[in-house]
Design a protein around this nucleic acid. Sequence first.
DNA 1: TGCATCCTTACGGGAAACCGTAGGTTGGTT
DNA 2: AACCAACCTACGGTTTCCCGTAAGGATGCA
Lengths: 221, 221
Amino acid sequence: MFKNVLIAEDHEIVSKSLRSALTDLGITIADKDYVFYCDDAFTRVQKALRDGDPYELIITDLSFDEDYPKQKIAGGRELIKALKEIQPDLKVLVFSIENRALIANTLFKELNIDAYVPKARHDAKDLKLALESIYKNKKYHSPNLRQKEEYLHDFTPYDKTIVSLILDGKTQKEMSGILKQKNMEPSGLSSIEKRINYIKTALNISNNGQLIAYCIANKVI
Amino acid sequence: MFKNVLIAEDHEIVSKSLRSALTDLGITIADKDYVFYCDDAFTRVQKALRDGDPYELIITDLSFDEDYPKQKIAGGRELIKALKEIQPDLKVLVFSIENRALIANTLFKELNIDAYVPKARHDAKDLKLALESIYKNKKYHSPNLRQKEEYLHDFTPYDKTIVSLILDGKTQKEMSGILKQKNMEPSGLSSIEKRINYIKTALNISNNGQLIAYCIANKVI
DNA sequence: TGCATCCTTACGGGAAACCGTAGGTTGGTT
DNA sequence: AACCAACCTACGGTTTCCCGTAAGGATGCA
């Protein structure tokens, strides 16, 4: 089983419980092996790497509460991205309250994580299975993820930009100018109109309010 | 210190940790004293009451994941309300990921809870303080609540109806008709226009998308 | 009763969004 | 070179939204 594991989790209660769960599995978690801030996690990994005793696995949450002094790395996503740059072979297990399959899949795809376990009713058992899987170099998708939701529309980066601009309170005409500035194509007012209309049709909704609600609910932005 | 405490928390990891934290404080948590479903919590309290050995305190989460078979009591709010009806003197400590002061205050006001502790960096210590406070019959507001946010605008039931209608994709003209049907005043198209505009000005935003985003972020609807 | 104030509503002009059409560009095929 | 398909964009008409003005109604007070 793993020897060097780091836990990045800002909720004390959860962190504590994770430690005892890992101890039960025969993994020793020293005081230096759990942190409450992303920045600390990064530092620890960096140091372990330099000391020639790198971590094999990090277990991390996705959302971290803000705190002062302001942290450089704000959340789990950014942390994983940063870690993969300095230690590409570091395994990553994400342990988060978020239980939408889509979110998890994105992480597997974009950040190449190794396991995703949602905090849920039987997460202790789930966690155990995940650890065993990734120890054998196998990815682990928790069965507790809410699979059903299917995307009616795949938001492209272009779409996301448009939605963000709506959120900024821009008019379509203003968007056209902004997209031209950014050299994003297409930037014609007409194209923007049509794209928004296309998305709404795909999602079967009729106004911007619903569009925003949908995007927020599905963490599109 | 408390003798009879019930824990309602659907995340196994958190539940486990809560138990050990309470044990550390000298509170015994038997297997019958923690549950993963609201319905079970209600049953336990009911039974304990009937057996003449009622609980003194319940520690409960707010949001519970859905599960099958479908539960009658869906969340912490409903649970607390139901419990207060059968045992008004039962003390309630809410332990939730939600850290907005406004949400907590509403619970103190409307459901007369005794303590609110957000899951956060130092929640173990926070929990301890809370338990000590309510044991002395004192309400406990966690200092970790995000206090700053002040409402720029208080959404009246009328406002909420309008926002809901926007979310339903209705036009303002349709809203006028619907409000007339519901006998809600004012129902004139002009009044609706002005109200929406007033809210937007108050929130310093310029389109419906932002309005919806604000309402979702602040759980107005 | 008369007057002031507040609220609701109707109306109208202008801006933005919606929607179809048609012209233009690009890139690939024959 | 001719053709075609896919895409972007400009344009115009309609609807919806935005916003100011003003008329009508209710209330309170002198």
